[in-house]
């Protein structure tokens, strides 16, 4: 499997990274180089092998249902590029 320019543009768009035409051109061989290399994994016979889920045996803990957090709007908004009236601001969205 190798990627073409259109695929690179699609990946960039999915990743929300704006790229120019020239950047897309440059990325095609770069990504293909890496993808071609990782594809050697296809050689490995993985029949009956489970994909890794927990690298060190460990159990998912569940916490109690108590309100222990929140009520810190100032901290939440402190670093926001745009915040007004207690909200984050983003360019107007049309749904």
């Amino acid at each position: 499997m190798s990627v073409d320019k259109q695929t690179v543009q699609k990946i960039a768009s999915l990743s929300r990274i704006a790229i120019t035409d020239a950047e897309a051109d440059a990325l095609v061989p770069e990504l293909n180089n890496i993808l071609g290399w990782v594809e050697q994994l296809g050689e490995v016979d993985c029949k009956d092998v489970e994909p890794m889920t927990a690298v060190i045996p460990n159990k998912l803990r569940l916490r109690e249902d108590a309100v222990t957090d929140g009520d810190m709007r100032d901290k939440i908004l402190k670093n926001a590029p745009a915040a007004e009236h207690g909200f984050f601001g983003v360019p107007k969205v049309i749904e």
Binding site: R63, A66, V67, T68, D69, G70, D71, M72, R73, K75, I76, L77, H85, G86, F87, F88
Partner: peptide, 18 residues
């Protein structure tokens, strides 16, 4: 997260860092 689920609070007051 441990933030409250209560309905109708002031904006962004029931928000944790998570």
């Amino acid at each position: 997260s441990g933030a409250s689920t209560e309905f109708g609070a002031e904006p962004n007051t029931q928000v944790s860092l998570v």
